[in-house]
């Protein structure tokens, strides 16, 4: 098989895969795998490197969004290799790339023992993008997930952080009964606004514990 990213032929090297008890065949080569950078441990909520509670999250905790997110984990830093990967997956719509981090994402989600709830896409955008990148990773990782949210409209994008915090009504509940423990799943944690809007809605509706897992910490 050839590496999904660099296209080079991959030496079948079962030894190290066995070592990590990974059972799916590898999709990218060692060199490409090594070009990604695990996000360092840090803030207990968003995982930003450094303080135990980062500046941004401290600020969030003084707002009405205090304690909507109990904790969270971001798997990778947004380094040049990850930027390239994300671009190819999300914007060039290279759907098979869902396989690349699916297993790792699944492992982190399973550790939380909560019900996985993907951050959804607006249905018009989904049609344009042709697949939901978060859902597809969960499927490849063998994670059962539940959609609880509906995304109302396209609001993110060119806004400033302040404007984003003001954004209301980005999500609505789809009416499905809520589980007590929820792990929200998104591809990228940037300002944390999206996740907090979703989490607040769910907590206000009765969810008890909400954590999140994001593939990338931007």
């Amino acid at each position: 098989m050839n590496c999904y990213l660099c296209g080079n032929k991959m030496a079948s090297d079962p030894s190290w895969r066995d070592l990590f008890f990974l059972d799916k065949p590898e999709t990218i080569c060692r060199l490409c795998r090594d070009s990604f950078e695990q996000a360092p441990a840090g803030c207990r909520i968003c995982g930003a490197s450094g303080l135990e509670l980062c500046g941004e999250c401290s600020h969030w905790e003084t707002t009405e969004f205090a304690a909507v997110l109990d904790s969270g984990k971001c798997l990778y830093s947004y380094n040049p290799a990850m930027k390239e990967f994300f671009h190819q997956y999300k914007f060039l719509q290279d759907a098979v790339l869902a396989e690349v981090f699916a297993e790792e994402l699944a492992k982190s989600i399973k550790k939380t023992r909560a019900v996985a709830v993907p951050i959804p896409m607006n249905h018009l955008k989904l049609k344009r993008r042709t697949f939901a990148q978060v859902d597809r990773m969960l499927e490849f990782g063998g994670v059962d997930y539940l959609h609880l949210l509906i995304k109302n409209e396209e609001i993110q994008g060119e806004k400033t952080r302040e404007e984003r915090r003001e954004t209301r009504g980005l999500f609505a509940l789809n009416g499905h009964p809520l589980p007590k423990k929820i792990v929200l799943v998104d591809d990228m944690y940037t300002t944390g606004t999206t996740l907090r809007l979703a989490a607040k809605l769910l907590k206000d509706a009765g969810a008890e514990e909400i954590t999140f897992v994001a593939l990338i910490r931007a």
């Binding site: 050839n2 719509q93 759907a95 098979v96 989904l126 049609k127 993008r129 042709t130 697949f131």
Partner: peptide, 22 residues
Amino acid sequence: EKIVAFRCARCAGQCHYCRHCI
């Protein structure tokens, strides 16, 4: 390896795309 299948939300079914000239 280059013409791959995926479930497509636009054509609501199995769809193929080309990875070669993506």
